[in-house]
């Protein structure tokens, strides 16, 4: 198999794009496509300061790497969730990447050091063992938004790839989660007055395999093992199902997700949303916006321990 651009031996074949590329041209293509996605969905504005949420996994490290190679202002945020063994190893990967990119700043939030409990401990105390992932999601969303606002970042970028997004879409359609479908988009506008940073997903049109190939070809060292709490997750089952469809009909995942976005953009698909009914108020403890009135979801998790100062390394 030969590279479409130069005729050398191809490193990767992408049936979804009917495209095979050698390593140098793949890395070039990857940057071009990221830029194209940033433009297509108007993810960035001039002068934006980007905060990249980095977990130590392949997607987020690849995203930070790509944004820096594109010459954008992008710092990293690592949230240490206190997952035994796993967090220490993932933190090490992020620190190693940051050490090689001294022009970028890395913020670290250590949940246990800051709030008194690790995420698994908090999940056990609050909701029982089987809800760790939902507790983790609340903690990460809160802390990402907090650091972005406190440190003056206008954009929060996450490494969600097409497989992630297609699996979420699949789950939302399967259960007709209209509210979630209405919100599913690779750009969520920020609102400084309301206290939200803009959220973007620049890798939303990359297959997970494409991101992994970029990471390998760039020699980025990432945490390969799965988070111990993700084993058996529904999202993994949905990804496996979608890959079976993809195997029979290349491009299925891309069409499923991108055509959903297109239908939304062209207003062929509309959701009855009543924003006037959603009244956001600052959380009584942390000040972040909440619809709940009183405490936000994050502060409700910690009701016995009021969040203290928020030091950032």
């Amino acid at each position: 198999m030969r590279c479409r651009r130069c005729g050398e031996r191809a490193a990767i074949n992408m049936p979804e794009h009917k495209l095979a590329l050698c390593a140098p041209h793949y890395l070039e293509w990857f940057l071009e496509r990221t830029q194209n996605t940033l433009r297509k969905y108007r993810m960035l504005e001039p002068g934006d300061r980007i905060l990249v949420a980095v977990s130590g996994g392949k997607d987020s490290l690849a995203l930070w790497d790509v944004l820096l190679r594109l010459g954008l202002s992008a710092d990293g945020l690592y949230i240490d969730l206190g997952i035994p063994d796993y967090s220490a190893r993932s933190r090490q990967k992020v620190l190693a990447f940051a050490a090689e990119h001294p022009t970028a700043r890395l913020h670290i939030v250590d949940v246990q050091a800051q709030y008194g409990l690790s995420v698994p401990e908090l999940a056990v105390r609050k909701r029982g063992d089987n809800r760790t992932c939902s507790v983790c999601g609340i903690v990460k969303r809160h802390e990402m938004n907090r650091i972005a606002l406190e440190q003056g970042y206008t954009v929060l970028a996450t490494g969600h790839n097409l497989d992630d997004e297609a699996a979420v879409l699949f789950g939302n359609v399967l259960h007709w989660q209209i509210g979630y479908l209405a919100r599913q988009y690779p750009v969520l506008p920020g609102d400084e007055a309301e206290g939200f940073a803009r959220k973007i997903k620049p890798f939303c049109r990359f297959y997970e395999r494409e991101v992994a190939a970029y990471t390998l070809l760039r020699g980025l060292d990432y945490i390969y093992e799965e988070c111990p709490f993700a084993v058996g997750a529904t999202s993994l089952e949905h990804k496996a199902l979608l890959n079976q469809l993809e195997h029979r009909a290349p491009g299925t995942k891309l069409q499923f997700y991108v055509n959903f976005l297109r239908a939304r953009q062209q207003e062929e698909l509309q959701f009855k949303v009543e924003p006037t009914q959603v009244i956001l108020e600052p959380c009584r403890v942390c000040g972040q916006p909440t619809t709940a009135g009183g405490l936000c979801a994050f502060c409700r998790l910690w009701q016995r321990e009021t969040p203290s100062e928020h030091p950032v390394e």
């Binding site: 198999m1 191809a10 490193a11 990767i12 074949n13 095979a20 390593a23 996994g57 392949k58 997607d59 969600h160 790839n161 497989d163 992630d164 699996a167 997970e208 395999r209 991101v211 992994a212 190939a213 390998l216 070809l217 390969y224 799965e226 988070c227 993700a230 084993v231 997750a233 999202s235 993994l236 990804k239 496996a240 890959n243």
Partner: peptide
């Protein structure tokens, strides 16, 4: 350390690593 496409030939004395790319997300 070299990424291979599906048509590449693997020989009996090769050592091959298969990298899983799907994660929980």
């Amino acid at each position: 350390g070299v990424l291979l496409t599906e048509d590449q030939t693997l020989h009996p004395d090769d050592t091959v690593k298969i990298v899983a790319v799907i994660s929980g997300g």
